[in-house]
């Protein structure tokens, strides 16, 4: 199992293929296996050197007690690229992995060829979105309720609150929750729940609206047809100088799982021909 050290931590990564570099960044509570399950590793490896890694606190990487803002994760991404000799890469981030990818592009623009944002919502842009439309959160609340965890409907997808509740489940309810989510998932949630990840993921950490809008790289906003975050997609296309939107049909927030073929086709099209001319396309809102 390959590991690389960066920022004093050990990161589990997987690498395949050869060609221009692509780095894949999974979302919170996930791990790099998502990129195998949706065939991104297998398919992109035909034309690129593809690197996927487990974020700090996730999968087989180290789990520090704190340092889970998008700035911290972005620092890990660039440090890992240094360690692995990746000078310049296209970066693909799913959900919060997209926040990390864009934050890394803000901090080290010279290291990135292009950025693919798969359905992220940004703490700095939360005012754009209507909580009540997020079916994913409603489904998740219902599942949690059936497993004995009550989540507030007043809060946005609040990982801090969620972790807090999972950590304080008593014996009977913990057993029900464990049966509902499975033991490995429960153990990973408990491990991550003891860190500052939940609350850290809600802060801007320097990734302000202004900085988001100034990212002058080819950016693909890749959102599910029924994503709860289409207002964010519209904002990105309207305000980033070189951003275009692509919609994955038959998908909500998790296109790599819900429609892996559709997700992969749009991703491959973009990586083969990212939009070139700077400032050629700026849509009015």
């Amino acid at each position: 199992m390959p590991f690389s050290s960066a920022n004093g931590m050990r990161f589990h990564y997987q690498q395949t293929g050869s060609g221009p570099d692509v780095v894949l960044v999974h979302g919170l509570t996930g791990d790099l296996s998502i990129w195998f399950l949706c065939r991104a590793m297998q398919e992109l490896g035909g034309s690129h050197r593809v690197t996927a890694y487990d974020l700090r606190g996730h999968g087989y990487s180290d789990v520090p007690p704190d340092g889970y803002t998008s700035a911290d994760h972005a620092g890990d991404l660039v440090a890992l690229m240094d360690q692995l000799g990746i000078d310049r890469a296209s970066v693909v981030g799913h959900s919060y992995g997209g926040v990390i990818a864009l934050h890394a592009a803000v901090l080290a623009p010279g290291r990135f060829e292009a950025v693919v944002l798969s359905d992220p919502y940004f703490p700095a842009l939360r005012h754009l979105e209507d909580v009540s439309r997020w079916g994913h959160w409603r489904d998740f609340r219902q599942e949690a309720h059936e497993a004995g965890v009550e989540l507030s409907d007043e809060h946005w997808y609040d990982l801090g609150l969620f972790f807090d509740q999972v950590l304080h489940l008593d014996g009977e309810r913990l057993l029900r929750f464990r049966q509902a989510v499975g033991l490995p998932a429960l153990n990973r949630l408990l491990r991550l729940g003891r860190t500052t990840c939940g609350d850290d993921s809600k802060v801007e950490a320097g990734l302000t609206v202004e900085r988001i809008a100034r990212v002058d790289l080819p950016v693909l906003a890749l959102y599910g047809e029924s994503s709860p975050f289409l207002a964010t997609a519209a904002f990105l296309e309207a305000h980033l100088p070189r951003c275009r939107t692509a919609i994955v049909p038959d998908a909500k927030h998790r296109a790599p799982e819900e429609n892996p073929e559709g997700f992969l086709r749009l991703l491959q099209e973009f990586l083969a021909r990212p939009p070139r001319p700077a400032g050629a396309r700026r849509l009015a809102t």
């Binding site: 199992m1 997987q14 791990d31 296996s33 195998f36 487990d54 499975g182 490995p184």
Partner: peptide, 26 residues
């Protein structure tokens, strides 16, 4: 009690055990 990330790692261990590449991606 394993997870899909464990399947990735097990696949690697098996390839090394048998000394050849196997289509675990499929």
């Amino acid at each position: 009690g394993l997870a899909s990330i464990d399947a990735v790692v097990l696949g690697e261990m098996l390839q090394s055990h048998y000394g050849r590449d196997l289509p675990f991606g499929d």
